[in-house]
């Protein structure tokens, strides 16, 4: 049995510890917002937080989650109220939307550690997340916008 918490809920699972966390999240826990894109930490679509840090769940064995706190896109906020989600709405970022869970989860770590990120900070944080539709310019704008919201105290 492997035990950890997901979006605040405790789970105990009987699962092969070498199974990538991604597939446990998607299949056992039915949290399908976290996406499979490459299986080799190349695209970032599977990004979740383990104890607050961005992790590519497609290459992290579920054993790594033991005793830890996992946050997936479903847990970023209960009601689209995270400043990044609000900024993403305002900038109308997604196209196909498949990569956006991972983009948001990466951006959330960036924003927490650098509340006023520069373009360079954005490059450094977000270059591991591929968007095939090409929403990068809007992602960049939305991150800046979310930072402004936080600075103005307009969001949590």
């Amino acid at each position: 049995m492997i035990g950890f918490s997901v979006n605040g809920k405790r789970v105990d699972l009987d699962v092969d510890p070498s199974t990538p966390l991604l597939w446990v999240i998607r299949e056992q826990l039915s949290l399908t917002g976290t996406k499979y894109g490459c299986g080799m930490a190349q695209c970032g679509a599977c990004t979740v937080h383990i104890n607050g840090e961005a992790v590519r769940s497609c290459v992290a064995p579920v054993s790594r989650a033991e005793g830890k706190s996992i946050t997936t896109i479903e847990g970023l906020s209960p009601d689209l109220s995270h400043p990044l989600q609000r900024a993403w709405l305002e900038e109308d970022v997604p196209q196909c939307g498949y990569c956006q869970s991972g983009q948001l989860m990466s951006a959330a770590v960036l924003l927490r550690e650098k509340p006023a990120p520069t373009d360079e900070d954005i490059d450094e944080a977000m270059t591991g997340n591929i968007c095939r539709c090409g929403t990068y310019p809007r992602i960049r704008r939305a991150i800046h916008r979310a930072a402004e919201m936080v600075a103005k105290g307009g969001a949590r």
Binding site: E113, D121, A125
Partner: peptide
């Protein structure tokens, strides 16, 4: 590493 691109991310 930095922010969302720490070594342990991958």
């Amino acid at each position: 590493g930095v922010t969302a691109a720490k070594c342990s991310t991958c």
